[in-house]
């Protein structure tokens, strides 16, 4: 298992992986929870939301990274917010033009990407300090991690709540909708269980790793 992975381990791949698993914005850093729960009642909605946020993250990271030496330190947060808001407005109008149905399902939450702390956090912590290429890799990883997290929550809620996956029925006609998972409490409960799962897996992996490094394991 170790040998074939090695050839990919350039620094770029590491930062990419970090965003998806080790520093996953939703499950580990608890950023961007609001959209993660609000629109994740079906797999399709959550995927669309994840992709929209990723596009905004990529665009604003690129611009901020390019302008990092131009923006004065004192007004950087305000500048970042304006840049992010510009991209969000563009994405908002694009979705409106592409699919009215999706636009209505996501509602005001597309515009609320502006205050997604995951995006502002990335811009402040990474894009403002690094050169364009590494920023883009990092933003892609973070966006992928965010999309993945939303997709997981959305799939679980749709499968349990509607008995479907991307509108394809899974359980036959006798399935009773488990309605609580579609309603707001379901979002909190699914996220709570996933957080516990992530913490559990990390706890199980941590001691195993030290054992390996100590030379006991295989």
């Amino acid at each position: 298992m170790v040998a074939p992975q090695k050839q990919f381990e350039s620094p770029g791949f590491d930062t990419l992986k970090e965003g998806i698993w080790k520093d996953n914005p939703v499950f580990i850093m608890l950023l961007g929870l609001c959209p993660a729960l609000a629109v994740s009642n079906t797999a399709l909605n959550s995927l669309a939301m994840g992709l929209a946020s990723t596009v905004v993250l990529l665009g604003s990271s690129l611009l901020i990274s390019m302008m990092r030496n131009v923006i004065p330190k004192q007004v950087r947060i305000a500048s970042y917010i304006i840049i992010i808001a510009t991209f969000v407005t563009a994405v908002d109008y694009t979705i409106h033009a592409l699919s009215l149905e999706l636009y209505n399902a996501l509602g005001a939450f597309i515009q609320l990407i502006v205050v997604n702390c995951m995006i502002l956090g990335r811009c402040e912590a990474y894009a403002s300090k690094n050169k364009v290429s590494t920023t883009m890799v990092n933003a892609t990883g973070m966006g992928a991690g965010f999309t993945l997290a939303l997709f997981m929550i959305g799939s679980i809620r749709e499968i349990l709540g509607f008995g479907t996956f991307f509108d394809i029925p899974l359980f036959g006609p006798d399935f009773q909708n488990w309605a609580i998972f579609i309603l707001p409490p379901g979002g909190f409960i699914v996220l709570s269980l996933l957080l516990a799962l992530f913490a559990f897996v990390e706890k199980r992996r941590a001691p195993a790793k030290t054992e390996k490094e100590g030379g006991h394991g295989s």
Binding site: L183, F188, A199, F200
Partner: peptide, 23 residues
């Protein structure tokens, strides 16, 4: 509380119950 359910997970579970009450 169980080890894995550290602050965030248990807080979310509580929020879920509060949300159920608010329904």
């Amino acid at each position: 509380v169980p080890d894995a359910c550290t602050s965030a997970a248990i807080a979310m579970m509580l929020a879920g119950m509060l949300s159920m009450a608010f329904m």
